[in-house]
Amino acid sequence: MALFEEQLTEVRNLLDGWRGSGSGRDFDCSAREPWPDGPSLVLEEETALELGNPSAASISLLIWSEGGGVEDGKVTLVGPDVAEAASASVPFGQVVIAGGTFPDEYESYRDVRDAVYDTRLAGFSVRTMPSRQSVWCRVSRDAAGRGFSLVDLGAALIDSLKSLDGVSGAQVVFVTAGVDEVKKLAGAAAGAQRIVDAMMKMYSEENYDCETCEYQDVCDTVMDLKKIRQKLAEGKGSG
């Protein structure tokens, strides 16, 4: 099985459900004017909308597909956009899907991840906690007043991913519709996290003994991980 295949299927099923029930709105951002880059500190008193505050639900997930099927340039909103939110703080789910070829999984993962981490927009602050898979954002009143939309964020993420070699397309899904909707992403996020953790572990340790590895179950289901391990073990043997 390819690296994130299970998570891709899960996210696609969720998307079908959201679109089917009319709660998912699609935006094509391929011709959108980019939102300017800028400093990232937004204090509470300057905040128009907070997304994924540590006390609210927040789930962030980053996966890729080498087999096509990525809806390039598309941002899907499940729930209210910045100007539509009824409260000052909403739970937040963020799914980023990159499409293309990712020959060196570890390097590719880091590049794709950094492209997401390094996306900084004026009047928008974003903090990421990888081990909690959460992302916590604030939109300043100033940015909201100038019309900042989650579609602008999606467009910026897609742009920065597509600036990478090997990435031919990208799509983003934002969920602001409430805790229950955000939590639907939990399974896929946890699965992706296990895969990434297993991969990171392989690269950071010299030990390829499957019997004692805590990620054995993940490797057993995800063939790509086995291939990475073999590649690493061979590299080590010859070096």
């Binding site: 880091r110 991840r113 950094d114 981490y117 903090r127 990421t128 906690m129 990888p130 081990s131 959460s134 916590w136 990434v196 953790d197 990171m200 572990k201 950071s204 340790e205």
Partner: peptide, 18 residues
């Protein structure tokens, strides 16, 4: 816990400081 490179730790630290 392991498995986090410097970039992961740097963004985590930003989050925790906030």
């Amino acid at each position: 816990a392991g498995g986090r490179d410097e970039k992961d730790l740097a963004v985590s630290l930003d989050y925790l400081l906030a």
